[in-house]
Nucleic acid binder design. Structure first.
Lengths: 210, 210, 210, 210
DNA sequence: AATGAATGAGTATTCATTCAT
DNA sequence: TATGAATGAATACTCATTCAT
């Protein structure tokens, strides 16, 4: 199976090409995570990589393209990581797995997640619109909503209006996403956080006793 | 012996001054909310206000000061708005009021809230540290944690570990804050959102039947 | 800050870099000498060099750094030029050589000297203190005072109080420094000036007959 | 920072006008002396005077005019102060008196002198030419040259070429002028300086024994 | 494949001056 | 007389991008 690159004019990637792109992306991630999107100039990134600014432009046709690759790479990694969720057999365990798996992924990719959050909430088009962040009906909510509806139909979750399912999905997603920022604090206990989160949303979703 | 001050009538001059500052702040808020913190240059703000850049510098000694006023103004407005929460007499109703009141405030100050979020998450000092955003133990969580602990001690909420109370507070706060972004979508139904949110966290906090 | 180097391993002498820096320094010197420190903006300097403002910023990280290089370059040139003074074998001839050599150097570096004078007397730190000019006990007076004390101890100079030696040194230095300004006038005869100066200070320092 | 306010009262308008102009000039002198010509903005001067910028523009048609008044006022004061020099009856005593009187004047008008020096060496026309400082044949040298020629013709001074007389005059004037800067140092002993200076130039001018 | 050099638009801020009140 | 308000040009500096080598 072949993966196509966003066209940079290079149909093939040599080893050096790949290494350089990886190096630049890594340094960009570190810079964005540490200093924020706005402060992550190409110059800063290049300096951290110990290369000249021109190299960055050589390997990525624009800053925007570099950012796009950083975002995409995280989504690709994430998708692979998340596959285990689908193995769960009940809505409640799947929801718990969703929370645990996502937080585990975030814990394992602190900087990359932090950088992508920065990009998603700050990268804009020339006319000022957010480039990545989308309104409430974001595709990222789809799997979550599916779990919730499954639980509802299957009876182990309480009754949700369509909008109620979406709000629940958004709230869960928000709680997960914001965990990314919290990880900057080295004292932050991600495992305890995961446990509390799982409990919270288990209670919030389960069918109530009569 | 008395010394007389040359006191000229202040009401008029301070009116113009106040009006301009208000106008500039409003235009800054609109610009930040629509285009993001990084794109909200003094030039952009001035252009929106139909004035020259110098006017902004005349009324605000620095961009930082302008931002500070925008942030402070929202906190002042918010504090007044939130007073009604304290009137509630049970933990559950107070938590519900906290959510409702906060979301109502956000709904009534969409742009201002959006702008302050932008500032809080993007304004940085020269050395790259976030100027406003503070770690997880932010003061903003204090009232929420107090409600949760009250409910726990009083028995109507379930048992929380200390950390559990904090996680709950953070999750509620996140859900409220992110509502700000959602309001950009004109189709977004804030009242329904409020209702779902209140239910969600009521279930998540209430004491569980044996 | 860590850098992730992929070793490039070659360090090339940049002829262009040196040439540009030299060109910019030269144009800066001309601009400062002709129009004064305050009027010597980066824009003016760039315009004279026929380059864009950005080029100046590219080669010198700040205006202050450019000024520092201009000052330092003159001191380096000067130190080399002045070595001949030390070859003299009597206080009087050494004092004469000091005056002649300094004036010769000034005559040979009119603009550079004028520019450095401008910088020294005008460049200030943010809090308003002069950046280069130091109080009366400046290091520049040390060699002159040494000559005078030598002459006094050796007997060919008249008796000086400690302060008298300093005043003499300051006066000589002033006379030399101000020559820089006089050179702006093309009619100014530096050789005649040198002769008169040497005579003046020879008479002012020599031991008086009983 | 102290403000020199004038009391408002029901006095003549010309009194107020004079008082304001004097106040502004005084504050301008302090500002220039302390912070340098380039840092002495109208805003700074007005702030020190405790008035608005507009007042300065109201009383002085331009910054240039304000500077001109400051320079002129010093010359007027100086001319009056210097009258005693003319009472001397020998060239040597007159030269000594010139030095003593000038240094005494400088000592008595530290800030004003320092400010005027700043103005003279920094104020420029739009095309970059110095507005006040003139070439070597400056009018200020005339009286000094007259003393020297008198001494020469009368026989108590050594023989001077025409240019020699000018150089001597310039050197004396330089030594006097630079004393202005030295006064910033509170440890500077102006009386001892005066004594040394008088001796120095007495020796440099007197007729030499055969 | 990489780079040093250059550009030009864009940043916040300062300032002398003007003017209606 | 005095002032607050406004202006517009000027300041140093940053940055993504281009390009010849």
């Amino acid at each position: 199976m072949e993966t196509k690159n966003i066209s940079t004019g290079h149909s093939k990637e040599s080893f050096i090409e790949k290494a350089r792109r990886a190096q630049i992306m890594e340094c960009a991630i570190e810079t964005i995570a540490e200093r924020g999107f706005a402060q992550a100039s190409i110059g800063q990134i290049a300096k951290r990589a110990g290369i000249s600014k021109g190299v960055v432009s050589y390997h990525f046709s624009s800053k925007e393209e570099l950012m796009h690759h950083i975002v995409t790479a995280l989504y690709v990694d994430g998708a692979a990581f998340m596959s285990r969720i689908a193995e769960e057999t009940t809505p409640a365990s799947m929801l718990r797995s969703y929370i645990e798996t996502n937080l585990a992924f975030i814990g394992a990719h602190k900087q990359h997640v932090a950088a992508v959050m920065e990009i998603v909430w700050n990268a804009r088009t020339e006319d000022g619109k957010l480039l990545y962040a989308k309104p409430a009906n974001d595709a990222i909510l789809v799997p979550l909503e599916a779990i919730i509806r499954w639980g509802q139909e299957e009876g182990s979750f309480r009754a949700f209006s369509e909008f109620g399912a979406r709000v629940m999905a958004m709230t869960i997603r928000n709680a997960i996403d914001r965990a990314g920022s919290l990880l900057a604090d080295p004292a932050f206990d991600i495992e305890a956080y995961t446990l509390e989160m799982a409990t919270l949303f288990d209670l919030a979703t389960r069918r109530q006793p009569d």
